[in-house]
Design a protein around this nucleic acid. Structure first.
Lengths: 118, 118, 118, 118
DNA sequence: GTGGTCTAGACCACC
DNA sequence: GTGGTCTAGACCACA
């Protein structure tokens, strides 16, 4: 995984997992990789994955069965989408729109840029 | 000025100044406030303003006349726009578009949100 | 380390590090001392080392792995040489040559001085 | 005049004047421009010229006749050369030679660079 | 543990 | 007056 500074790595991992859930690669009820395995996978300090799993637990997306591992909750997909949307609308969009105004860009410009940088 | 965590204050000040330049409130060739004055204005430590001015110098937006103060360069407006655009197009937009895809939002949805935030 | 005024300490540290890199004492890929350790080493304030590391980062000579520390980039040696050469050729040499002309010194005179200082 | 940072402007002016003396443009015994005139000429704060003239006075190169102006002393040319040489040998050369060693440049390289950047 | 930021305050050279 | 540097010390997020 490539992480883009300065966003916290544990958040980027959380979003990565959420995308796996939304896309259906990880299914509700499934056991997800252990902290250690996942940390090895994405080449990251295990503590960082712990933080990610904690966050997802708080959001009700995953649960821990002690001694067994972490599992996707039944409503994981719905909660994931909600979480992501909340983040996006509240954190990203206002700043994004302010920038568009300052730079005097409209949605047509964005589409152009989007296609060029696709 | 109200600063929104967790973005560094000196960066927020830089963006603020850039907006003043783009909007034409600060004109090319103008002397900008002294480090101390500006620090008093926005109620931060002078060192923080020093960091901001350093950044803007590196970007070629302002220059120092020794013993006199900082001045907007002749191409300050263009450079400011370029700087902001670079940030936006390279850092913000790709992430933004990825989010749109994941959340299955299209530009119509954004326009709605945009109008609400306008 | 002994610092010679009036050159800023953080620049002198940067040059010192660059010399360590060019001489091969610090190798590409190596982790370099933490800000705190290095500050203790050379007996300066940690903030001063932060400035040095920032400069070297901007020059592409070192990179930060978040939470781990700073590392020499793969092209650190080349970039270091380039950086130093740039300083030397652009800043030092023209002035130097102008002085030689004014003082009517030629390279033979310099060699003599050079040998004495060797 | 173009001043190259970060060298103090008043020193650069001093060297400029010294060059005028060595080249013979300003002759011993001549009256030199008033502080104000010279400051206007080189577009600099008069206080800066005052510092320059003070320095040159200390070096015995110029003298003030109160109410009349500054004049070149009789031995101005010799003293100028001595001053410049002292500066050059003590301040510039050691650093210069150290750089040559670090960058593994020899005098042939310098000549090449010299010719290219002439 | 790592670096990043910020404050407070001091000192300095320079214009 | 101007900016530049440095220190001391604190707090923080992150890995």
């Amino acid at each position: 995984m490539n992480f883009r500074p300065p966003a916290p790595i544990f958040l980027q991992i959380a979003e990565h997992i959420i995308q796996l859930i939304i896309s259906g690669d990880w299914k509700e009820g499934d056991r997800i990789p252990s902290v250690r395995d996942f940390a090895t996978d994405v080449e990251v300090n295990p503590n960082t994955v712990v933080r990610t799993y904690n966050l997802l637990s708080q959001e009700g997306i995953i649960s821990n069965k002690r001694g067994v591992g972490y599992f996707l909750n039944e409503n994981a997909k719905k909660l994931s989408t909600t979480y992501l949307k909340k983040q996006f609308i509240n954190e990203e969009l206002p700043y994004f729109i302010k920038m568009m105004k300052t730079l005097e860009l409209d949605f047509e410009d964005l589409k152009k840029e989007y296609n060029e940088h696709k």
